[in-house]
Design a protein around this nucleic acid. Sequence first.
DNA 1: CTGTATCCGACACGATACTG
DNA 2: CAGTATCGTGTCGGATACAG
Lengths: 123, 123
Amino acid sequence: MSEPLPRDLFDPACPSNATPFQIGDKWAGMVLVCLEDGPRRFSELRVPMHRVSAKVLAETLRALERDGMITRTAYDEVPPRVEYALTPLGRTLFPAMAACRAWAVEHLPAVLDAREQYASRSA
Amino acid sequence: MSEPLPRDLFDPACPSNATPFQIGDKWAGMVLVCLEDGPRRFSELRVPMHRVSAKVLAETLRALERDGMITRTAYDEVPPRVEYALTPLGRTLFPAMAACRAWAVEHLPAVLDAREQYASRSA
DNA sequence: CTGTATCCGACACGATACTG
DNA sequence: CAGTATCGTGTCGGATACAG
């Protein structure tokens, strides 16, 4: 125990480094959850994500599209309509996201306890 | 399909919001991985995380300690020695982290492909 | 409706110097 | 060795105004 650990965690080949680029992104995960049950329009996404500005939401959607996680479909109508939908690749993220969510559900109380004890020790 | 979705994802009670606060943190996950095989000293952690300044590493360690994920043990010696170690609560994160890493290993090539195609479409 | 362009403040982060 | 204090910079992200 406690012998190895010489590697460079910033090596691009290290999955520990590449992993959170989607799940860990501040809002990408939210977008994916919002699309789980079917395609959504830009304005539909803004409702549950009301604390995110249009600018940042647009940037998040671009990044997810670029990475092949979602598709963007613009319909030539008036008024304009654009729908975002998960790709099969995007769906592959859900098991890992579910594991994270399950952890939070199970252990979040313990974390909050730890914070309280830490705060009272500092006082 | 495509009916629900009225909830507020910023509700503190929503696990989708609370989940990435550890795994998604820029360096917290790295620290946890570094501690997996046993306790480490501050300077030992700086080797694999050489791109993180001492200041930020210290802040990350404080946050993880506050949340009950790691312990900090200072030995009264000269020169000083401080060791960080996982708590049982901290260890509970590893299954979720493993799920994320497994996703990355399996699907990262597809993501890189998507990026190339996206770049060539833009050109 | 679905964005983009611009401005601007807040904060995250690194570098450096210093302390116990 | 294990940090903290201070400073400077770059980026994130909101608000607003505007375009297709």
